[in-house]
Amino acid sequence: MKKIDVHAHHGVWSYTIPVADPTERLLRLCERECIEYMVCSSALALLYDMQAGNEEMAGAFGDHEQLLGYVYVNPNFLPESVAEMERYLALDYFVGAKIHPRLSGTPENAPQMQELMAEVAGRSSVLLMHTVDQNAARQMGRYAEQYPQLNIILGHSAHTDSDVAARVAGEHPNIYLDFCCEWPGAGKIERALETCGPEKIVFGSDSDLLEPAFTRGMFEGAHLTEQQQQMIFWDNAARLFGIPSDKP
């Protein structure tokens, strides 16, 4: 089944990732895993230099229709983050913003984060938030209530706290779950389906930090119905990013 991958990265990580053009690596994964659209943030922006990373990714993606971008923003650099959003969200292939609390060293409830959230909510309809645990998930629920027009994807669905993340998603119409995680805990997707329903779950792989087939395995293990697969692999993300739903 064709997929929209809402959580991927462009760039280099200091792990066992082959030395090859990062764009080509992502395109190869897309082809193998039937990923029609892959929404990425820049590893360079996450790990080192926000502006250089966003710029590098924008330059790399212009010619590849299936690669879409999140503009990466950092609460430690508020005016610069606003400028980055102004610049990149104007491009049709940048479809949202990404925040990584741990890599920016800023807790989800910190004052700087609250300021950045207000700026993101005023400019973007989608935010992918790296969400590491239940406290973070609940804090994102508070932001979702504060900014009902902003759709927030909880990246990693709070890892082993995914049951809490599912409750938060069930309580807020604008919270979505993406389950990519190095811990493929059996049963967590089935429980989330019961708690928040398939309409609140999207497919994210964390490519190419993690293998998309690895994340796909979690959904295969959850024995989704055809209708659930359609919603999770395509419809929900298509709705969020304004991708035509007849594409598959």
Binding site: R32, P184, G185, A186, E211, A213, F214, G217, E220, G221
Partner: peptide
Amino acid sequence: SPESYFESAHNLVDV
């Protein structure tokens, strides 16, 4: 197994 989804680890080797 049984802590993790079997399919995740299997897919990794499979592909």
